[in-house]
Design a protein around this nucleic acid. Structure first.
Lengths: 289, 289
DNA sequence: ATTGTTTTGAAATTTTTGATACAGCTTTTG
DNA sequence: CAAAAGCTGTATCAAAAATTTCAAAACAAT
């Protein structure tokens, strides 16, 4: 298997290129279709057959023959290709935005960083401000008890969040997602509790069960997940999706980390009056150990 | 009155913006639809109702109710709007690749993201490629035993690294940095072992002691730290510094996360021959649970 | 001109798609 | 705790879309 990252960065020939090259072999009707498509590429092709035909001044069957001749099995197939091509084209400029490197950095690391940065941008742009703020408010409510949990991989993020927030305020816990370990804890979770779950694809049954149970008992569930949304979204009051695709066999959690840190930072700021003495006390304890 | 044409080229608020702002008023199902649409904007909306519904994990009628609520007369009307918006955006002088979309995102989150991205760039540029590659090689050596550890906050990163690498290869462990818990472990650590320590400022005495002890016994120490370098650097064979400053009362670990994920990704690629069957086995176990 | 070939569109057909009614369930409210 | 309001999915239906059929028109070659 060739290393994807090492392939030359050549854009695949778009359908438009092919059409231009084959133009000479088209029948007159097909040429009209081709010209209309190329002049509004690719949007003319995203309408219905009838609209496309009308725009080109030809009949629907001629349009169908045109796309068939291009090698598609039917009009929907043709449209699917256009959508995918458009999506790829629209996303790639982002990745190319600012080539990091000057040849210095390790290529694997540079590529990873580029992808991660693109993820962070996409993540920020897809978060609803109200949603983010609502979660900050929730986590800043000192009357509530906060629980963090995650799956096999994301459990580390839960722990990361907990290790910070527990210093800012009290009533903060991390829950291991193994059922055996949370079954007994569960009885005390109720209406005043907030459960923050980290769950990305290969959504973990344990986490889903945990969240569902908590929700059933009246807890407010906050979900931090990927754009495909963990099934927990069903019971979650608030959902914060982060992009996770990376040039690796693993998903990247950097976006989740960003959200976590931004949340913690915002809560710390909001609770600063009470957080400051707490943080100082912790510091004092550390030194006198 | 100013000439309309001379007004600043402000993009009309896209549908995506509106959705982000109205998110809080949506029903749970509508939120799922909204999140899926935003995370693949606008392509998720260009498919059929059924496909969109399946992608969002809701029913077709819920999708219809969603678009109706957005003010469209029906699904085709909605799609038409998406196409037109897309076309306008694509034709306009290439849209914003620059600073993150300000007005939309939660300001705290956007600021945090900007700082994090700057950190990642700075981190990548300050890593010596040879150093990075050497660590990859080290972690890919199946004859060695790998231990991950970290402090109060960075311990989560150690656990994150371990949870991935343990699937790729064997002889991978996480060590809690509390001395009581590693004292006994320490006796088995020797020349063939690799200790990867995460340690950023307020460098933790426990971690320093652990690293020094391991080094004294002949282990190879890899340090992932901040630019001010933990004292562990003196005993470390390899040092990977990451930038950590953020608009928060806390340091950001996103750079450490980037390095961790890049390392794991590179090791996974290098050991792919043996990692693949292991990962498949884990997958199979998960399913049959 | 006449025949054979290719191209084309009107109409019929089939498939897909969007829309609706309704009933079960959850959450909220009094 | 019961009633009301709201939300969501199943089943169904109507509309629209894509596709096929087929005969007429255009064209080319003799």
């Amino acid at each position: 298997m060739p290393d994807l990252a090492s392939l030359p960065p050549v854009d695949p020939p778009s359908l438009a290129d092919r059409i231009r090259h084959e133009m000479e072999y088209f029948t007159p009707s097909e040429k009209r279709a081709a010209h209309v498509l190329l002049s509004h590429y690719p949007f003319a092709g995203l309408e219905t057959v009838a609209e496309f035909a009308a725009r080109a001044g030809i009949s629907a069957p001629s349009v169908l023959r045109f796309v068939t001749r291009l090698g598609f099995s039917g009009f929907p197939d043709f449209q699917k290709h256009l959508r995918e091509e458009l999506e790829a084209q629209l996303l790639s400029p982002l990745a190319k935005a600012g080539p990091l490197d000057n040849g210095q950095a390790a290529p694997a690391l540079a590529a990873f960083a580029e992808a991660t940065i693109a993820n962070l941008r996409a993540t920020v742009e897809n978060i609803a401000p109200a949603e983010f703020n609502a979660v900050v408010t929730l986590l800043s409510d000192q009357r509530r008890t906060i629980h963090f949990t995650g799956g096999r991989f994301t459990g580390a993020l839960a722990r990361y969040a907990e290790s910070h927030l527990r210093i800012v305020r009290s009533h903060v816990h991390a829950i291991d997602s193994q059922p055996a370990l949370w079954r007994d804890r569960m009885i005390e979770i109720g209406r005043k509790d907030v459960l923050v779950v980290f769950d990305i694809r290969r959504y973990q049954d344990d986490s889903v069960l945990l969240a569902e149970t908590a929700a059933k008992q009246g807890a407010t569930v906050v979900l931090v997940t990927d754009p495909w949304l963990s099934p927990i979204a069903r019971v979650a009051r608030h959902v914060l999706p982060a992009h996770v695709t990376a040039p690796s066999n693993w998903d990247s959690s950097a976006g989740l980390m960003l959200l976590t840190e931004a949340l913690i930072g915002a809560v710390t700021k909001r609770l600063w009056e009470t957080a400051k003495p707490r943080m100082e006390a912790v510091e004092r304890l550390r030194r006198s150990e």
